[in-house]
Amino acid sequence: MRITVCWKWVAVDGADPDDRWAGVSPADEAALETALTLAGNGGEVTVVTVGATGSDAGLRRATAVGATHVIRVDGEGLGARDVARAIAPIARGSDYVLCGDYSLDRGTGAVPAYLAAELGAAQALGLVGVDRTRVPLRVVRRLDGGRREILDVPTPAVLSVEGAVARLRRAGLAETLSASTATIEVVAGPRPAEHDVVVTPYRPRARMLPPPSGGTLARVRDILDIGAAPAHGDAVTLDPPEAAQRIIDQLREWRYLPRDTA
């Protein structure tokens, strides 16, 4: 079995853009672990990263835990389409391509779907469970509204997994040592397209609200963005036991708890 794993190496949220503060997301780690178990003995797992020199550190780690090949496509600041395009030639021919559901910088999650389109493969994205024992592979995907979907996935397919799906094994000491000096295969990648992007700090957009059904007070409240919260009393000071009882009583009154609890 041949599996390609996509790892995105990113500087940690809010930190300096410095290799020290970088890594891959738990989802990407879960993708590699899933790949290693799926491939089993004799399988081939290739880990590919589209990134700058710093991402070699991630690929070394992938080597140490047991990836058969690692490749870095040299490139920075690429959009999801270009990333997928750069990965596709490497991933072509794989039974599965495994991605994280999100990278450490929480991009847009578009790379895996693009990859599936590029490869003409099936896609099953945002997985919360992978049953490795079944053929075809059976997976559980997260839907909205708290629902889950169970899918049977043919090959070839692109899968993206959430971080909780698996925990990446620890590399042995000898493997870590030899990976630390291994040379990483690098191939040239596309140059980023020029974009004019204006970057500002995040400001939430003013939300449109249905006209208030109540009177002036409700309207004022809406304008002040205290939402639908009804007027409230002053804070009450209570001992913890009283406080707990008060919360339970209130939840019961609001009908979040059945009337007959505790």
Partner: peptide, 25 residues
Amino acid sequence: VAADATVVDVLPPDARTMDLAEARR
């Protein structure tokens, strides 16, 4: 036109595993 995964089943919401964004409580 392309290989696609097959839906086997859709499971109803479970509050404990619900995505935070959609949680009612």
